[in-house]
Simulated scan of single mutants.
Amino acid sequence: MLRKLKALLLIPVIVIASCNGGSKAPVSDTSKPETPVAASTTKTILFFGDSLTAGYGLDDPADAFPNQVQHKIDSAKLPYTIINGGLSGETSAGGKGRIDWLLKQPIDVFVLELGANDGLRGIPIKETTQNLQAIIDRIKAKYPNAKLVMLGMQVPPNMGADYVNGFKNIFPELATKNKMALVPFLLQGVGGVRSLNQADGIHPTAQGAKILANNVWDVMKGVL
């Protein structure tokens, strides 16, 4: 009788071992299943541009206007994080060659700030237009649902009236064609104001960058 009782007591042990494939039993079987971690709802905004976007010459790179826009986004408690894709000296052709690398990460909003260096170099209007359109096309192909924002630029009057007007029209025309939100002139209120620009008269000071951020935010808040 005692032998039969021992044999019966061994049966549950054998069954448990076989269900666990011979591995050690868990320390406790009373633990609750882990709650799935919710996927991040934060969206990404890419500012793609030249030295204006990069914050050239500023003592603190955090003063660049895209970073100032981030402060406004945070204050509004909107779920967006900005990536600063600015590169000093960038032309529209350079941007066309660089954009694919930055598109390896998901983009929800794309802000295009390029063309100023083209204008200062007198690059033909048609060439700049084609390069900017090529960049926009790549965004639309890779992230068709991304919202698009164009930051308009202008060149000094010494470039000649035809070139000045043709250059200025690049941005609203591309914005209309591609259904982009448009900031008519990024440097509005800063361009030509000595106290708001660095010694070169081209790049804004930290205070000037705040005004640029306001110019952008006036349009972008409606997009977001």
Rank of each mutant, 00 (worst) to 15 (best):
V69I: 08
V69H: 11
V69M: 07
H71G: 15
I73H: 10
I73Y: 09
I73D: 10
I73Q: 07
D74I: 08
D74A: 14
S75M: 14
A76N: 10
K77L: 15
K77G: 11
K77S: 14
L78K: 15
L78Q: 14
P79G: 01
P79A: 06
T81C: 08
T81H: 11
I82H: 10
N84Q: 07
G85H: 00
G85P: 05
G85L: 05
G85S: 02
G86V: 05
G86I: 06
L87Y: 13
S88E: 00
S88H: 02
S88C: 09
S92C: 11
A93V: 07
A93E: 15
G94V: 07
G95E: 03
K96E: 15
I99M: 12
I99D: 06
D100N: 13
D100V: 08
D100F: 06
D100E: 14
D100P: 06
L103Q: 00
L103S: 00
Q105A: 15
P106C: 06
P106A: 11
I107M: 04
I107S: 02
D108E: 00
V109M: 06
F110Q: 02
L112E: 07
E113N: 11
G115P: 03
G115M: 03
G115L: 03
A116I: 12
A116M: 12
A116Y: 10
N117M: 01
D118W: 04
D118L: 00
D118N: 13
D118K: 01
D118T: 02
D118G: 05
G119Q: 00
L120D: 03
R121P: 04
G122T: 00
K126M: 14
K126G: 12
E127W: 10
T128P: 06
Q130L: 14
N131A: 03
L132D: 10
I135V: 14
I136T: 15
D137Y: 09
R138D: 14
I139S: 11
I139E: 11
K140F: 04
P144V: 04
N145S: 13
L148G: 07
L148S: 03
M150G: 04
L151M: 14
G152M: 03
G152T: 08
Q154C: 10
P156S: 04
P157V: 13
N158C: 04
N158Q: 08
M159E: 06
M159I: 05
G160W: 00
A161V: 07
Y163A: 01
V164F: 04
F167E: 07
K168V: 09
P172H: 10
P172K: 09
